[in-house]
Deep mutational scan, measured.
Amino acid sequence: HAATELTPEQAAALKPYDRIVITGRFNAIGDAVSAVSRRADEEGAASFYVVDTSEFGNSGNWRVVADVYKA
C-alpha cells in the first residue's frame, strides 16, 4: 500500500519520525508527490507531508522535502 499524503492540519497533529529529500525532474507537482509517496513507502512510512518544493536553477530539476510519519 502506498503512503498517503496528509493535509496541513493532519501533519500538524502528528510528529514526523524522519524527513526525506528527493531531487529529480518532475513535469508537475503531482509527479513529485508520487515520487515522495514511493520513497516514503519504501521507508515503511504510513503517510507523508510535503514541507517544501524548490526548483534548482532553470534546469527543470526539483528538490522536494517531506516529513514522513509511521501511523
Rank of each mutant, 00 (worst) to 15 (best):
S47D: 04
A35Y: 05
A11W: 04
V50E: 02
V21Q: 05
E42M: 11
A2P: 11
D31M: 07
Y69F: 11
S47R: 05
G60Q: 06
H1C: 14
W62H: 04
I29A: 07
S34W: 07
R38W: 06
Y69H: 02
Y17R: 01
V64R: 00
K70C: 13
P16W: 05
S34H: 14
K15H: 10
E42L: 12
G24R: 01
Q10D: 06
A71S: 12
A35E: 10
S37F: 04
I22P: 00
D67L: 14
N58E: 14
K15M: 11
Y69V: 03
V51M: 02
A13W: 09
T23R: 06
G24H: 02
Y17M: 04
V64F: 02
F56T: 09
S54E: 14
S37P: 03
Y49C: 08
L14M: 13
R19G: 00
K15F: 09
A40S: 03
D18H: 11
L14A: 07
N61D: 13
A32P: 02
A12T: 07
S54T: 14
A71L: 09
S34A: 15
L14K: 09
P16R: 04
V51P: 00
S37R: 15
R25E: 09
R63K: 10
P16S: 05
P16I: 03
A28V: 10
V65A: 04
T4M: 13
S59L: 10
A32Q: 03
K15G: 03
G44F: 04
A28F: 09
G60Y: 03
S54L: 14
E9Q: 11
T4I: 14
A45H: 06
A3S: 08
D52Y: 14
G24Q: 02
E55F: 14
D31A: 07
V68F: 15
A46P: 05
N27V: 10
F56L: 14
R38S: 07
R19D: 00
S54K: 13
I20E: 00
A2C: 15
A71F: 12
V68I: 15
H1Q: 10
A40K: 01
A2W: 12
L6W: 02
N58K: 10
V21I: 12
D18L: 14
D67H: 07
T53L: 15
V33P: 01
A13V: 14
P16E: 01
P16K: 03
Y17I: 03
V64H: 00
A12D: 07
G57A: 08
R25G: 05
G30H: 13
